[in-house]
């Protein structure tokens, strides 16, 4: 092996080390965020770090270490699968957290779901009133 190629190998190995340690640090950041943030919404913000960026970094490290081209599409599929599933579960957890009031309202900078909930509540109340009126008229 020429000196040039081994230098390139050393560079790839160093890049792999950086990616792996950074990916592991994402997990640590998520754990610290889980422990220190005050409510469910801010904890969800911390929890997405290892799921998206951390996974991307370690998968890129795998691709660098294997040194073949055909692994990159496979790793990309694994990452895109994670990208498709994580927002859906995060949306459902966040919505369930909103509906069960596991949040501190004063920490929110904007609350776009409040209008929708208020309108739905008003509609339900109107239906209830109509039903009550019909019920009281009948006997």
């Amino acid at each position: 092996m020429t000196a040039d190629a081994s230098g390139f190998d050393a560079f790839i190995d160093a890049l792999t080390a950086v990616f792996l340690v950074a990916g592991a640090l994402m997990s640590l950041a998520a754990a610290i965020g889980l422990l220190r943030f005050p409510d469910l919404m801010s904890r969800m913000h911390a929890a997405t770090k290892p799921q998206v960026l951390g996974l991307f970094l370690v998968l890129a490290a795998i691709g660098l270490q294997l040194r073949t081209w055909w692994v990159w599409p496979v790793l990309l599929v694994a990452w895109i699968f994670q990208l498709l599933t994580v927002p859906v579960s995060a949306h459902m957890v966040g919505r369930a957290g909103y509906r069960t009031k596991h949040l501190q309202k004063e920490l929110l900078s904007t609350d776009e779901l409040a209008d929708v909930v208020r309108r739905a509540a008003a509609e339900e109340q109107a239906e209830q009133d109509a039903r009550d009126a019909a019920g009281s008229k009948r006997p």
Binding site: G23, M26, S27, G54, L55, A61, L64
Partner: peptide, 12 residues
């Protein structure tokens, strides 16, 4: 996700 990262580091 941490378990997945451990698996991926082992693979790398």
């Amino acid at each position: 996700a941490i378990l997945g990262a451990a698996l991926a580091i082992d693979m790398a």
